[in-house]
Design a protein around this nucleic acid. Structure first.
Length: 217
DNA sequence: AACTCGGGGCA
DNA sequence: TGCCCAGAGTT
């Protein structure tokens, strides 16, 4: 595994490659952020943004989502896929926010995880983006990049990836690190067709060197 | 750890 | 057409 200094060098390079890396699902308030990120599972962020644009004009409060029949909410988010479960989760989530949290999105990762449709990744995004609490949300991009660059072990679980990153990255940089790695993973270190030949991190990348060697044969 | 949900985007 | 997508829940 890479040491702290090498990891820092990688992250600095990612920062140069994507200086404006940010949360593309960022919205005006914690409530809208929870909805947007919960909707984003197994779906592109562009599609989520297309849906939430109209959604957030129509619904502003948890009560608003509960005042329509489930079928109507399903229709409103139909184009993102998995819409039946997600519509059901949103209404249950709104019910819990009202009944258990005074209508306020909790600023606590473990409390957020109790909400339906909110897993560890979504909860980490919400606390870090909406409440400025240090957290590293490990999604498919962060996991893939961490493993290719040997920030962690290849066979690590998602939770182990998160723990390793928290150990090797200064706390005050967790949130930006998450965003940089996502941009790097999405636009450069892509799942199917990584841009290894033109990657500035190739010298430090175990997987990249392996891929380059394999492509020469 | 493996499986399922799912419409849209893209090759 | 076939494959994949800022995951989560269940078994």
């Amino acid at each position: 595994m890479l040491n702290k200094n090498d990891i820092r060098a990688c992250l600095d390079t990612m920062a140069e490659m994507f200086p404006d890396a940010h949360c593309e699902l960022n919205h005006r308030n914690p409530f809208e952020l929870v909805i947007a990120v919960a909707l984003s599972a197994q779906c592109t962020d562009a599609l989520v943004n297309k849906v939430t644009k109209n959604l957030f004009e129509k619904y502003q409060t948890p009560e608003d989502y509960l005042n329509v029949p489930i079928e109507e909410l399903q229709t409103d988010i139909r184009s993102i896929g998995l819409y039946r479960n997600k519509a059901k989760n949103i209404q249950k989530l709104c019910r819990m926010l009202i009944d258990d949290y005074g209508g306020i999105v909790p600023a606590d990762r473990d409390e957020l995880t109790k909400l339906p449709g909110v897993g560890r990744k979504t909860a980490n995004v919400v606390v870090s983006v909406a409440y400025d609490i240090p957290a590293i949300a490990v999604d498919t991009h962060v996991e893939r990049v961490s493993k290719r660059l040997a920030f962690c072990r290849w066979k690590d679980s998602v939770l182990e990836v998160e723990k390793t990153l928290m150990k090797k990255v200064p706390k005050e940089e967790w949130s930006v690190t998450h965003h940089r790695m996502i941009f790097f993973g999405r636009y450069h270190c892509k799942a199917q067709n990584p841009q290894c030949p033109e990657c500035p991190l190739l010298d430090l990348c175990r997987e990249g060197k392996k891929r380059m060697k394999a492509s020469l044969k």
